[in-house]
Simulated assay, not measured.
Amino acid sequence: MSYDLAVWEGERPADDKTAGRVFDDLYDRLMETETDEPPTERIRDYVAGLLERWCDLTEDDDTSPWSTGPLIGEARGSLIYFPMRWSMAEEASGFAAGLARSMGLVCFDPQLNKLRPQRPRSVRHQHRMQRRLCLGGVDREAFGVSGADVVDRGVGGDPE
């Protein structure tokens, strides 16, 4: 069993649904064809970065997370769609997604139909979620009350 990732050149899609459509189009155009379009320079550089971290399967099938070798053989044009061993997928896919982002490439998980890594939430959104967690789901700003008011009204628990 393997875990697959797709990485491609281009602008990062606005959401997961759009990314799924872009991936399907690229896959059909580049992978489901009789012609083997050579990988672009950026995709070759990306594969080189992956292979700096872990060797190719053709070099060592015990320590390599890749399920196929040579890894560059999974690349066509501006897309690489590559499998990795399930037992190493969490670590390897995390590294692969981070490397893609650092190189300005798009990384997509076709199993979950999700972009990787996910865009970080805004700081304001994170603070709002932290308040909700700390107050048992109550958002002070939404109710126009201070922290002391929440405790005094019994929403936040016993003040003692």
Rank of each mutant, 00 (worst) to 15 (best):
H125T: 15
S146K: 10
L71S: 10
G77S: 10
E11I: 07
K17V: 13
T33L: 06
S78T: 09
Y46V: 06
I72S: 02
Q126T: 07
H125L: 14
F143V: 09
D15F: 02
L105A: 04
D4G: 03
V150K: 06
M129Q: 15
C55K: 10
M103E: 05
T58S: 10
D61H: 14
M84S: 08
E11R: 14
Q111S: 11
W86H: 13
S64F: 03
M1A: 15
L50D: 04
F143G: 00
V47Q: 02
D139G: 07
M103R: 09
T63Y: 04
T58C: 09
L30P: 01
I80Q: 01
D152Q: 07
Y81T: 01
W8Y: 14
W54H: 01
M129P: 00
D56P: 01
G136M: 03
R21L: 14
P110I: 01
G157K: 10
V106E: 12
L57G: 05
R128I: 00
P38M: 08
P65A: 07
R42Y: 02
R85A: 11
G49D: 01
W54M: 00
W8I: 04
A148Q: 15
G156C: 04
E91V: 13
E59S: 12
Y46H: 12
T58E: 14
E37D: 03
G147F: 13
T58H: 03
A6L: 10
W66P: 07
R131V: 00
E59M: 08
E74S: 11
Q126W: 06
T33W: 05
R76H: 15
A75F: 01
H127V: 11
D60L: 00
D109Y: 13
S93D: 07
R21T: 08
P117Y: 03
D62A: 13
Y27K: 04
D45T: 08
L112V: 07
M84V: 13
L30C: 05
P13H: 11
P117V: 01
W86L: 09
L135T: 13
E52A: 15
A92E: 04
G77N: 06
W86E: 11
S146N: 10
R116Q: 15
P70Q: 12
T68F: 14
A6K: 10
L112Y: 12
G136V: 01
F108W: 07
P38Q: 09
D60K: 02
F82H: 02
L26W: 01
E32G: 06
S87W: 12
L135N: 15
G77V: 03
D15Q: 04
G69K: 00
E9T: 01
G10P: 08
W54I: 00
N113L: 09
Q130I: 11
L26Y: 01
R101E: 15
E37N: 03
F82P: 02
V150M: 11
A19Q: 09
F108Q: 05
A19V: 03
P39K: 00
L79C: 05
R85L: 13
G98S: 08
F82M: 04
R132E: 15
E141A: 11
D45L: 13
R76W: 09
N113D: 09
G154F: 02
F95Q: 07
G147Q: 12
T33D: 08
E41V: 12
E52F: 10
P159H: 10
R116P: 05
S146E: 03
A48H: 11
R42W: 03
R53S: 08
H127D: 11
Q126L: 10
T40D: 10
S122I: 05
G77M: 07
A6G: 15
G147I: 07
R44V: 00
D4K: 06
D45F: 05
H127A: 15
